[in-house]
């Protein structure tokens, strides 16, 4: 069984494929790290950035690490380094 997770891409990450990706994940839960690898597989142009250490993950408006679980209905986001105001 797989579910679709809507992912927001911020800043320059949105340049190639837009600010929103619908990502299919196996099962009802995966980790942020799994999600990064799934995106890199599906959208190779994003691989370097999304797998790199400078892009941080955000879940429920909190910064999370790669072990954080992502469930169906969550809306994770990936942040490139911020520009500041």
């Amino acid at each position: 069984m797989s579910v679709s997770v809507t992912v927001d891409l911020c800043g320059r990450l949105a340049d190639a494929h837009g600010p929103v990706l619908d990502v299919e994940i196996e099962g009802e839960v995966c980790t942020v790290g799994d999600l990064r690898r799934r995106i890199a597989q599906e959208w190779p142009g994003l691989a370097d950035a999304i797998l790199g250490p400078r892009v941080r993950a955000c879940l429920a408006e909190t910064m999370v690490d790669d072990a954080a679980p992502v469930r169906a209905g969550d809306r994770p986001a990936f942040f490139p380094p911020v520009s500041g105001g």
């Binding site: 490139p80 380094p81 911020v82 520009s83």
Partner: peptide, 21 residues
């Protein structure tokens, strides 16, 4: 200028460019 969560890009006649601190 360095920590607030903004992503900034400049638009010029030559196109668009992301800016970092």
């Amino acid at each position: 200028k360095s920590d607030a969560v903004f992503w900034k890009r400049e638009e010029t006649a030559l196109g668009s460019r992301w800016i970092e601190p």
